[in-house]
Each structure stands twice: as C-alpha cells, then as structure tokens.
Design a protein around this nucleic acid. Sequence first.
DNA 1: AAACAATTATGCTTTAAAACATGCAAAATT
DNA 2: AATTTTGCATGTTTTAAAGCATAATTGTTT
Lengths: 233, 233
Amino acid sequence: MSIKSTLEKVISEDLAEIWSLLKSEEKRLITDNFEVHNFKKNQIIYAEKDNPVYLWCLLKGKVKLYKDGIGGRQQILRLYRPIQYFGYRAYFAREPYVSSAAAFEPSTVGSLPMDLVKSMIDNNRDLAWFFIHELSKNLGGSDTKIVTLTQKHIRGRLAEALILLIDNYGFEEDGKTLKIYMAREDIANLSNMTTSNAIRTLSAFAQERIITVDGRRIKIVDEAKLRQISKFG
Amino acid sequence: MSIKSTLEKVISEDLAEIWSLLKSEEKRLITDNFEVHNFKKNQIIYAEKDNPVYLWCLLKGKVKLYKDGIGGRQQILRLYRPIQYFGYRAYFAREPYVSSAAAFEPSTVGSLPMDLVKSMIDNNRDLAWFFIHELSKNLGGSDTKIVTLTQKHIRGRLAEALILLIDNYGFEEDGKTLKIYMAREDIANLSNMTTSNAIRTLSAFAQERIITVDGRRIKIVDEAKLRQISKFG
DNA sequence: AAACAATTATGCTTTAAAACATGCAAAATT
DNA sequence: AATTTTGCATGTTTTAAAGCATAATTGTTT
C-alpha cells in the first residue's frame, strides 16, 4: 500500500483531530514527508536515550510508552490507540527520550520529521494549542499516576489499570470483554506490581465475580465494583 | 510597595525568561493586570479541584506543588523558586487542578488572568514555545518520578530528594548547607516515605558522614556518595 | 516563665508485597 | 510427535517499609 493511500484511508476512516487544524499547503508538506512503518509485536519504535527526530502517529494497532527501571522492572506510562501522536515531548524539551515506545501488537505507524512539525507550529496557532493541550493533559495524568502508584494498594492499582484499559481500548461487541489482550507481565508493568501479584490479584477478582478470565481475555463483570476498589480498598 | 514597583524591582533583579519574550504592548497589558499577593508560611495558593483562573509567578519565597493522597499522605510533585511560573497546566488541559500549591515559607506571588495569557500566546509564538518547553520538561520529570518513586528503595529516594533540593535551591555561602529548611515531614512527602523513615534515614546518612544535620539545617558533606546512592542502592 | 503544642528521635511490632520455588498447561520449535 | 520454551497459577518464605508507642527536644502561646 502506498504512503499516500494509507494515510488517506486512515484519514477518511477516522479524521484525526490534528488534521483538521491544517492548511492545505501544510497538508501537502505532510504527505510529502510522511512515512509509513510497520512494527511487529513487541518491536521497539524508539528507545530511551535516543534523540527524538520524528513525530509518530499510530495508524493501526496498539503502542505502549514505558520506562525500564531497576532490575529489569518496566513501568508502562501511557498507552496509545489510533489515531494518536507520540514521541514529540523529548524534542520539545530539547533532551533525549526518557522512555521507550514499543508495539503491543502488529502496528502501523506514520512518521513526520519533528523539524517540520516545529516549523508548522511556528505558522499555525491551532497546532501550537493542540500540543499545549496534549502536554497539559498528559502532565496531569502523570502527576496523578505518581500518587496512585505509590499510595494505593495492589488491588486498587490493578482495578485502576483495568479501568484504564477500558477507557483506552474499550470493549468487544459484547460490551464486556476488554479489546486489548495483554500478557500478565504487561498488566503487572502497568500497575506497578510483580507478575505473580498481577496473576494472584486477577484470580482474586475472578473469585469475587468482578471479572472473568479466560487466558488473556478479560471480561469485566462488575465495573462499578472495580471503580469502587480503585477509589478505596 | 506598589504592584508596579514590586514587579519592576523583581524584573530588574533577575530578568525572567518569559519577560524577554514580550512585546511592549504586552508588557503594558501585564503591568495593568498583574497583582501581587503575599502568602504566609504553609498558606494555600490554590487547591485541588479549584478551577484555574490565574497564571502565578513566584517572586519571592518558596512554593511547593503537591497532591493529597490516601490517609492524609501528601506527595510533593514539584518545587518552585523565584522567578518561576505555575498554575497554568490545568487551564490548558481545560480541567480543574489535580494538585495544590502552597507557600513553604512567607512568599510573594504575582497573578495574571489566564485568559489574558491565552490571548497573548495567540499573538506570540515565542510565548507558545515557552509553555510547550516548560510542559515538556515537566512531563519528562513526572514520568521519571513515577519510576524512581515506585522502584527505588528508601535510601535511594531520600538521596534523590536531597539532590533535587540542591538543584532547586542550591547552597548557602559555605557551598555546603542547603538553602531550604524543610520539616522532616515535607522531606518525607517529597521522597514518598513516612516521617519516621525520613528521620531514620537522614540519621543513617549523618552517621555515614554523607550529610550533617543540625535541626533543619542540612549540610551536604559527600555529594558524590549521595548521587551514587540515588543511582543504585 | 509556665504550659502547651508540634517536631524530632528511636525502639518495637506488624504487614503488604517481593522473592523464590514448584507444578502445570499451552505454544512454539525441532 | 517429541521436546523445548513460554506463560499462568499457587504456595511458602523473606524483607522493606509502614504503623505504633514513647520520650526527648524544640517552638509557640498565654
């Protein structure tokens, strides 16, 4: 599939917020510099300490932004779905990446040189506001995450992680089954616990009829209870 | 002291980065809408769930940005020194504050309506970049904090907190004594531990001749060791 | 100065979560 | 099909940090 047709297909399927902000010359500049990449499951898109060069736009699939910590422990910071942009923060901060991005499942990702994005922001107020808004929302999210991950107990953290998955990727047609199938290890990395404890606590939730678990398929049975556990216990 | 003379005194003392980015009509608009407030020690400037109305600029003193968590446990997210800006993130994210700001010590703070700031950004590219840059740096900092506060052990977290204090407020004339005098409780809230453990671990560091402690005066004796502890054990 | 409150210091107990060990089942590779 | 690898499940042990108690010190108010 050609770059342009891929892009236009995506655009027509689900118009990205950013695209509507662009003037026609800008749109031409983009289609000329836009490149489409395919990433396999678990393939790294960029890594911590790399220098940021591209704005990435997830077109198809699922991407995780994560940070490798102590003793191989990984913390998932954010999850992306089509059509969301990532990889720009480090460029704007004028520093190397502090986190890595990897495809959760086979994914199609577009790239655009950040230098081009920068010059477009210079000439497009709305685009500047788009990034100010995104950065502000993310910063609020990270600040909140600092407190929940350090202060909530295991059950609360897992419940919150499951709610995040609901909010990010939603349900299958049945309105119950999570649309993302994650390894227990990734669920653990999302909720700051060991894999053992993620498995254990998922089992506990299943026992309590809050969820059902069938391999990696997680069905949310009692969302209200989940939100309650996330807030308190 | 009048609003204008206070502002101009500060400006002349230490020209704020932002000020140099402004055009002369903008400077007039600011001096007309700028208000100076004095806050007592521990007084709250704004609180979580409030709606953001002002851009705040710390002119004199020290300010902490923090979030109240579970069981009255507080997490300090960021520290401000003159001349730094805060309180704008929630406005840009179009949401209420997710954290609170309070004066650490008697402080003078300027305010400017965010609606005015917004219109200024609309007409001033450099100002837009200023905020994009600030937000990006803060987001990187918060993402990093998520991992260090959840994964490092107590000694590492305390060492890191002390380094943050060095980087933020520096030393007295002796080049050793921290320029900020915090309660043990605040040191604990900065490094995600209980007050008991902050006291205990500070004592341990003193025993190991890494620091000396005299009430709230902390002298950094072996900064290299501190950085080593922060990085590893 | 006396009385009170808040902060700092230390020791002891409890506990939540990590670390470790082992078994089993399902995929993947040969 | 047999073998190896990977992921899931669960029980046991260990440990880092919280929780609690008490005392000493310092700071504040009357």
